[in-house]
Amino acid sequence: MLSVDLDLIDKKILELIQHDASLSVADIADRVGLSSSPCWRRIKRMEEQGVIQRRVTVLDRHALGLNFEVVASVKLQLPTRENLEKFESAIDGWSEVVECMTVTGAVDYIIRVLTLDMQAYDDFLRDKLLSLGLVSDVQSRIIVNVSKRTTAVPLALVEETNSGN
Rank of each mutant, 00 (worst) to 15 (best):
159 E>F: 00
115 T>M: 10
25 V>M: 05
115 T>E: 10
72 A>R: 05
38 P>A: 02
75 K>W: 01
68 F>Q: 11
103 V>C: 11
86 K>C: 01
52 I>K: 14
65 G>R: 02
122 D>Y: 11
112 R>E: 07
123 D>P: 01
152 A>T: 09
161 T>P: 02
44 K>E: 14
24 S>K: 15
83 N>R: 06
68 F>V: 13
33 G>V: 00
113 V>T: 02
19 H>D: 11
149 R>N: 12
1 M>D: 07
85 E>H: 12
118 M>Q: 15
55 R>P: 01
149 R>I: 06
118 M>E: 14
43 I>T: 07
138 V>R: 04
112 R>L: 05
22 S>E: 11
143 I>W: 00
163 S>A: 12
131 S>M: 06
78 L>P: 00
109 Y>N: 08
47 E>I: 14
143 I>E: 11
9 I>Q: 10
102 T>R: 15
84 L>R: 15
103 V>W: 05
82 E>V: 09
65 G>F: 03
158 V>Y: 01
58 V>I: 13
65 G>H: 02
98 V>Q: 13
111 I>S: 04
37 S>Q: 13
88 E>P: 02
137 D>S: 10
53 Q>I: 07
40 W>H: 14
145 N>F: 05
106 A>H: 09
66 L>H: 10
25 V>P: 01
39 C>N: 05
92 D>W: 02
22 S>T: 15
139 Q>R: 12
